[in-house]
Structure formats: C-alpha cells, structure tokens
C-alpha cells in the first residue's frame, strides 16, 4: 500500500536551533499515529511543516503522491490536510455555530443549498457534544469545550488527514473518554496524526507511535514495542512527563 504522507529529510531551523532535523516519516492511510516526545522535541514544528503553517528549511513532503512542499497552507487544507492548533485558536468573538460554519461552508460544493450549512454545522457540533452551545460565543466556552470546538472545526473540513496537536490538554477525565471514542469514529473515514502527552490516551488510540527527541525520530513502532524500548524510557517515558 502507498503511504498517504511521506517526508524526506524534512528540516526546520530557527537560527542555530534545529527544531526539526532531517526527518524521514511515512504514514499509512487509515492508521491512527501518535507522536510523543518531551517538551521542545519539535512535534508541533513538525506537524506545522506538514500543514504548511510554516515553511521547511529543507526536505520534501509528499501527500497522496503529490509533492506539496511548496504549496500554501490553504491549498493543503483543500487537498484534505486539516490541522487543529495546540494553542486553542477558535474565533473567540464568533459563536460556536459560526466557528464551525466556516469550515462547513468551504467544503460544500453546492453554493445555493441554504440549509446545508446548518445541517453540517449541527452534525459536527453534535459529534463533539457541543450541540447545545451553538449560539454561545466561542470565547465564553470552557477551555475543554474550546478544545472540542477546535476538533469540530477540523472534522467539518472532512479531512483525509486530521492532525490533532494535544487535543486532550485541559479536558476532564469524562471528556477524555468521549474524546477517545470520537477519534475512533473519525478514524473510520480519515487518517489521524495525534500529538499527545497523555500516555493512556496514546496507548488506547494509536496503531503506531513515533517518538521525537531533539528534532529527530528516536523510535517508531507499535505501542508495545515503544513501551519496551529502553531508549524511549530514558528520553521520555521514565523521565519527563509534560
């Protein structure tokens, strides 16, 4: 099977700092991949390169057979690469409804269907458990609900690859259980790339895990393999826990 996404020698330097340093990475269609690693390992920078939010210093990104290295972010979104932000960046002054309406209306090809936006929005809000908050300005939602709204916006883009950057940060335990269910649901239709510090969540969700350290891939494998890997334990699992 052909990978959905591959990177070759992907690097991004900030001055002298090699935030992402020559990463070769491949993601199979349909899988749930988790990226873990200590704070500052380069995880967010790596997925930002994939989404086009920042430009690489060198290297190449291929999505579905096409070289997208130089493609503007908005075109990647249209190809099906959706990104939800680590730092919540919903539109605080717009209602939850309007936040989700923006991605929904963009994916509608039929520009005239009046009710389609409403239907799509309410569906995405319902899937994330926010249906009763549709009229609330996003800035007035609880932090956990803002995280979920962020996911709802990603969902509404109908992505082929959904990149979630620490989606469970700030969620209550009960919300996390729902979230795990939601990701399983999403994964039926899309490939999921998930940055996550919460190890139980990673272990329950991931088909495979990629471990980042100092801008490089330290290890990659199934949850069991990663759990057993001593390098990983030294670098991450035993030591820091963000």
């Amino acid at each position: 099977m052909m990978p959905l996404l591959t990177t070759k020698g992907l690097s991004r330097h900030f001055g002298g700092l090699r935030a992402v340093d020559g990463v070769d990475f491949a993601l199979m269609p349909g899988e749930i991949r988790a990226i873990i690693g200590p704070n500052g390992a380069g995880k967010t920078t790596f997925v930002s390169l994939l989404s086009g939010r920042i430009r690489p210093s060198s290297g190449m990104i291929v999505f579905d057979g096409a070289d997208i290295t130089g493609m503007p972010a908005y075109q990647r979104v249209r190809l099906g690469v959706a990104y939800t932000f680590q730092i919540t960046s919903v539109f605080a002054n717009l209602t939850a409804f309007d936040n989700v309406a923006l991605p929904v209306q963009r994916t509608l090809t039929d520009g005239r269907s009046k009710g389609a936006v409403r239907t799509g929005v309410m569906e995405a809000l319902a899937r994330t458990g926010l249906a009763d908050r549709a009229g609330t300005p996003a800035g007035q939602l609880s932090y956990g609900h803002q995280r979920l709204l962020e996911v709802a916006m990603g969902l509404a883009l109908k992505p082929r690859l959904l990149i979630l950057d620490e989606p469970t940060q700030g969620l209550a335990d009960s919300e996390i259980d729902n979230f795990i269910e939601l990701v399983h649901e999403i994964a039926k239709r899309a490939t999921v790339l998930l940055i996550e510090h919460n190890m139980p969540v990673v272990m329950q969700l991931a088909d495979r895990i990629t471990v980042f350290n100092s801008g490089r891939i330290l290890a990659e494998g199934t949850p069991e393999q990663i759990r057993a890997n001593t390098d990983v334990q030294d670098a991450y699992l035993g030591a820091t826990h963000g």
Binding site: A73, Y74, L94, Q105, T107, V117, L157
Partner: peptide, 24 residues
C-alpha cells in the same frame, strides 16, 4: 452571506482562516 462570514473570520484571525482552507 458566506463571503461575509469569511471576511469577519479574516478580521478576527487571518492565520486561522487560512488553516480552514481559505485563500484570504
């Protein structure tokens, strides 16, 4: 209109609007 909604989104956060697939 939908166009108006995009314009307001650009005002509120242009980077985010791009990441929803809009050519801002």
């Amino acid at each position: 209109s939908r166009f108006g909604r995009v314009l307001v989104a650009i005002r509120e956060n242009e980077e985010r609007t791009k990441m929803l697939g809009y050519d801002t």
